[in-house]
Amino acid sequence: MISFKNVNKWYGDLHVLNKIDLEVAQGEVVVVCGPSGSGKSTLIRCINRLEAIQKGDLVVDDMNVHDKKTNMTKIRAEIGFIFQSFNLYPHMTALGNVTIAPIRVRKIPKEEAEKLGRETLTRVGLGDRVDNYPAQLSGGQQQRVAIARGLCMRPKIMLFDEPTSALDPEMINEVLDVMRDLAKGGMTMMVVTHEMGFAREVANRVVFMDEGQIIEVAPPNDFFTNPQTDRGKYFLSSILTH
């Protein structure tokens, strides 16, 4: 479903993605972790070309993302992207936020899109909040609207860039619950997160990155109990003791 082949990216002299090779199968949940600045956000931002790569191939759903001839609208429509800072549109209601792309990109009639929007907002537990503006919602509710916004496009893939890092602790679980449901429903997901409990529970594999490289890829239980590299051990000890 997602295939990185020798992907490289530089910011000036900084080698932010260094020879990345990774295959993510349909229905798989991959958690990406690593110290800050390790390139994990950049990694998933390349998948829908929010960032460009300079070398290598990145293929999503049989379409080459970094080929100039590729229709990016078509790829992006299939990929939901969840930001750390939600990035809801503040001038639109929750329903407006989740229906704009289905109406404009998928060309779904407005009434149909609104029906879909209400259903999706209900699915993330916000059926009574459709007419609220983002500023009237808590952080956890805003992030769930953002997830609903992604889901309304009926995507094949959902990408999460530290979805709970900007949330107060008591709101983290309401977001993780929605993500657990998605994972159980068979959604292909890549999740950048420090929520190790979530990783253990739903991830098929954990990708550990440092300094732009993938250091380890392993099933969560193997990685958490028996990391194969010193950097992995050091990272786990530093996040588990904090």
């Binding site: 990016m72 992006r76 939901g80 992207f81």
Partner: peptide, 8 residues
């Protein structure tokens, strides 16, 4: 970015 990601 959010709008780009959704295909607008």
């Amino acid at each position: 970015e959010a709008a780009t990601a959704s295909g607008l």
